[in-house]
């Protein structure tokens, strides 16, 4: 089995890549949302009525960032996504 530092090293770039994809997904959603709202003439409240999928992603990210989340993060996220 790998040591902790080997795990950190081996999967760092892959994790960085996946986080960047999530960041781009959120940016893409915001850009589309702003386009739609400005098309309708109310660009100030583009966050209103956010798609529940996005809300779930934000919850998942907050859960990952919590240092007290323990070592069952994957299981917790699967349960969270099952609520959609």
């Amino acid at each position: 089995m790998l040591t902790a530092s080997q795990v950190a090293e081996t999967y760092f770039l892959e994790s960085r890549y996946m986080l960047l994809e999530i960041a781009a997904y959120l940016d893409r959603y915001d850009a589309a949302s702003i386009r739609e709202h400005s098309h309708n003439g109310n660009s100030s409240d583009h966050r209103k009525g956010e798609d529940p999928k996005l809300t779930l992603i934000r919850k998942a990210l907050a859960s990952l960032a919590d240092p007290a989340a323990g070592i069952e993060r994957t299981s917790a996220l699967l349960k969270l996504f099952a609520t959609l």
């Binding site: 770039l13 892959e14 890549y17 960047l20 994809e21 781009a24 940016d27 893409r28 850009a31």
Partner: peptide, 17 residues
């Protein structure tokens, strides 16, 4: 690149922006 540079989706995001 698969991991270390830009992804196809991010590239299209930038083209749109």
């Amino acid at each position: 690149y698969p991991i270390t540079k830009c992804s196809p989706k991010r590239a299209v995001d930038m083209l749109e922006k």
